[in-house]
Design a protein around this nucleic acid. Structure first.
Length: 793
RNA sequence: GCCCAGGUGGUGGAAUCGGUAGACACGAGGGACUUAAAAUCCCUUGCCUUUCAAACGGCGUGCGGGUUCAAUUCCCGCCCUGGGCACCA
């Protein structure tokens, strides 16, 4: 019989008590305890908690509580990533200040987060919009500026015409639309604040080696950074100018029969007087500029380009004169923006050469037909004939005075945003237009309030009289403020540091606090951050480390991505589809413990999506009621099997939590409860079960703990240990195969001998009938696993 | 095209080292209790053949091969789904 409990009364009662006692505060670091820093991605305060937040915060809480009960001092902080466009857009819509809107949301979300009953270290909380937080965001930016890691550069940027702002490469989706607004991204050339993430490209790849991250996440980062190993080689143009190309295949240099410059290549404009067909060339440049990024990247389209009449280049290996083209299949932003084209050994060059009637010269023997892009033996390459591609590479580069080098897909991170609700970039310009960092004494360089922030494409801070006056007052007449704000990914690139020392007025984080808590031991978060947040924050930490501002070179030791909770129909939850599951309603009807337990039970906590099943939730509620009702099965004694099963269960639950396999941990406890209900169990065993369940259902277990009048909180009690000898089976049932087919089973000690096993077979009629008058040729016996009898048919 | 992850009952999933495939939960079917319904309890539930019932029958972890006494697990070749990258030289 299930025993119902009043989850609303129980949950609010314990949540209040825990809060009163500060039970989960991280507190002062106690060096007698091992530390564990568990991080989850801080939420944007949209004003309403959704089921994804539950999945992201309540399930890791199982691990957090488990670690606490193991005796670790655990830091499990929560804060708010509160700058960004939604607040600004909501403020425009409701005609109020983004700060008001944000603060109201934070307050409300805080109460929703409390209803989860998680063991958050609220004493360490912070918010990106708190001036005491963004003061340090700005300070680090000025340090980067002083050390050439932040710079103002003319760059081709991604312009989002809906949000009216620049966005970073990482924020453009593969289909050329904006990750935020969905707008088709336009390319614009404009001055931009950039961070030199490319300086760390090699470190960002190489240091992955030592991280305990899933391989697929590392792969995705390596891919994103896109290191390719090759060489830079100089070609001389007919009017004496040198052009450098990048190639991964210097071994094919003798086969380079033409050269291509990107339409945006600076030399094209510079030497327009030398180009005989300039008007045609100019028209092509204009046309390719008009194409949006999607068209330009569509490699299924026919190649286009224009020959630069009157211009030629010299192949430095063969000495041959070769024609020069501009074509938009060569990208200005990658490599050197110029290529040597080898039609015989590159598919794209081949297609282009076919169309324009350019010579195809094979220099690598290998494939049956051209173009052949593989490696092979060199031919028609002068003194290099007969060498393998690999051998030839460096030799040829040396011969022509080139240099081996790497190039990367990764671009510097553009962080300037032409919007209001963000961290002001702490830069002022002197009357000559030179940029200066705002000195530390004037930080935080506050976000002005006197701004009409409706998006016009122009940065809203430009309209602030206060900011302008402030700048002139501090720096002098004619000085002007920078009016852009920072990408919100900057805010979240270092929040894990501020949590450690959230009250520190003199430093972003003290070395002592870092020594106590760094690095993040376990970082749970969404898969969508693999090439954005995770890459940015690794860069940030490395940049700080290079400047000697932090103690560690990498922020996160271990990482697990989780997936998404889908609507009951299997689709992504959305208001328009009407498939949104409201966690508040669920908490009200079945309770926080049940919601958490259900989310943990759906499947392993990994990058996989699960549909919400309204019936499934009920099953977990039933389980909790059975645990609650199990108190009525308490007896003076219990069977040996019950004791053994308990120890097996403890072993499995401990193992599974450590592996984030919360689903099988729960099912193991279900198995135990199912059996205990049919028999009896001692009070001691019952309370052991309750402790085992405590990380999964913190409210109900605390309630049961108090009913039995036990000291303190269950969540401060030690997690159950198991006795290996009791957890071991005395008897096991194993399968018996005849010629590899399962034909029966026998029950015996896991250490029984082969002879004993064969004796037992004789007692099984079914098996004996099969074996009748047959000779056993071979016996395979794996104790505790299988008995396989090979007979002559 | 390249890189990564995955494909198991009606559903979510389990099988930790190559050793009884389908734990646990949901759903479904049958029964008990009830005036009735809900809740709860008990039984059945991978598929197929034959059967009153069944099995000591056959099949079965995307498909086709292979290794092995034994394969969801290892190897080779495919197909499909999801994710990342992509005119990146």
């Amino acid at each position: 019989m299930h025993k119902r409990f009043d989850h609303q009364a129980i949950e609010s009662k314990w949540q209040e008590k825990w809060k009163e006692n500060g039970l989960y505060d991280a507190g002062e670091r106690d060096d007698n305890k091992e530390k564990e820093y568990v991080l989850v991605e801080w939420p944007y305060p949209s004003g309403n908690l959704h089921i994804g937040h539950w999945y992201a915060f309540a399930v890791p809480d199982i691990y957090v509580r488990y670690k606490r009960m193991l005796g670790n001092q655990v830091l499990y902080p929560m804060g708010f990533d509160a700058f960004g466009l939604p607040a600004e857009n909501a403020a425009i819509k409701h005609n109020l200040n983004p700060r008001e809107w944000t603060e109201k949301n934070i307050e409300y979300m805080r109460s929703q987060l409390d209803s989860m009953g998680n063991a958050f270290s609220w004493d360490k909380t912070t918010s990106s919009t708190d001036p005491e937080y963004y003061k340090w965001t700005q300070w680090m930016f000025t340090e980067f500026f002083k050390n050439d890691l932040a710079y103002r550069g003319e760059a081709i940027v991604n312009w989002d015409p809906i949000d009216n702002t620049v966005i970073a490469n990482e924020q453009v989706l593969p289909d050329g639309t904006s990750e935020r607004s969905g707008a088709i991204v336009e390319k614009k050339k404009m001055p931009q604040w950039m961070l030199k993430i490319t300086d760390f490209a090699d470190d960002l790849i190489d240091d992955l080696e030592d991280l305990n991250w899933p391989e697929h996440i590392k792969d995705a980062q390596r891919n994103w950074i896109g290191r390719s190993e090759g060489a830079e080689i100089d070609f001389e143009l007919s009017f004496g100018q040198k052009v450098t190309v990048f190639t991964t295949r210097p071994d094919t240099l003798f086969g380079a029969t033409y050269m291509v410059l990107a339409p945006e290549h600076e030399l094209v404009q510079k030497y327009k007087d030398d180009i005989a067909n300039w008007s045609e060339v100019e028209a092509y440049i204009e046309a390719s500029r008009q194409k949006d990024e999607r068209d330009r990247q569509d490699n299924t389209k026919e190649k286009t380009g224009v020959k630069l009449e009157g211009v030629s280049a010299t192949n430095p290996a063969s000495g041959e004169e070769i024609p020069v083209y501009i074509a938009d299949y060569v990208l200005a932003g990658y490599g050197t923006g110029a290529i040597m084209a080898v039609p015989a050994h590159d598919e794209r060059d081949f297609a282009f050469a076919q169309k324009f009637g350019i010579e195809v010269k094979q220099v690598v023997a290998g494939g049956e037909e051209l173009p052949y892009a593989g490696m092979g033996t060199l031919i028609s390459s002068g003194k290099f004939d007969g060498l393998s591609s690999e051998e030839a590479k460096e030799n040829i580069v040396k011969e022509v005075g080139g240099r081996m080098t790497n190039t990367y897909r990764l671009r510097d991170w553009s962080i300037g945003r032409q919007r209001y609700w963000g961290v002001p970039i702490p830069i002022v310009y002197d009357p000559e237009g030179k940029a200066h960092p705002v000195p530390e004494e004037h930080l935080p360089w506050t976000l002005p309030e006197d701004v009409d922030f409706k998006p016009t494409g122009e940065a809203p801070l430009a309209k602030s009289a206060e900011l302008k006056a402030r700048t002139e007052e501090i720096f002098g007449e004619g000085w002007t403020p920078e009016v852009e704000t920072m990408d919100t990914f900057v805010d979240s690139s270092w929040y894990f540091l501020r949590y450690l020392d959230n009250q520190n007025k003199d430093n972003l984080v003290s070395p002592e606090a870092q020594k106590s808590w760094m690095q993040v031991d376990m970082y749970f978060g969404g898969a969508e951050h693999t090439t954005m947040h995770l890459l940015y924050s690794r860069f940030w930490q490395k940049a700080l480390h290079r400047l000697g501002l932090v103690t560690h070179n990498e922020p996160y030791l271990k990482r697990a991505n989780h997936g998404m909770i889908l609507g009951p129909d299997g689709n992504k939850m959305s208001k328009s589809k009407g498939n949104v599951v409201d966690p508040d309603e669920q908490v009200k009807s079945v309770g926080a413990d049940t919601v958490k337990l259900y989310l943990a039970f759906m499947g392993p906590y990994e990058d996989n999506s699960y549909p919400w099943d309204p019936n499934g939730v009920v099953g977990l509620r039933r389980f909790l009621e059975r645990v609650y009702g199990l108190g009525e099965h308490i007896a003076q004694e219990e069977s040996e099997e019950m004791t053994s099963l308990l120890h097996k269960t403890i072993k499995k639950v401990r193992y599974d939590i450590a592996e984030f396999k919360f689903n099988t941990a729960i099912s193991a406890m279900m198995v135990y409860v199912n059996k205990a209900e049919k028999e009896n169990l001692t009070k001691e065993s019952y309370l052991t079960l309750v402790k085992l369940l405590a990380p999964f259902a913190p409210h109900l277990t605390e309630e049961i703990w108090s009913v039995y009048d036990l000291e303190g909180s269950i969540h401060s009690s030690p997690y159950p240990e198991y006795d290996e000898s009791l957890a071991r089976d005395k008897e096991v049932t194993i399968g018996v195969q005849i010629n590899g087919k399962m034909r029966g089973e026998i029950t015996l000690s896991p250490t029984a001998s082969e002879g004993e096993a064969l004796e037992l077979v004789k007692k099984v009629d079914v098996l004996m009938a099969r074996l009748h008058q047959k000779e056993i040729m071979k016996v395979i016996y794996v104790p505790g696993r299988i008995l396989n009898l090979i007979v002559k048919e």
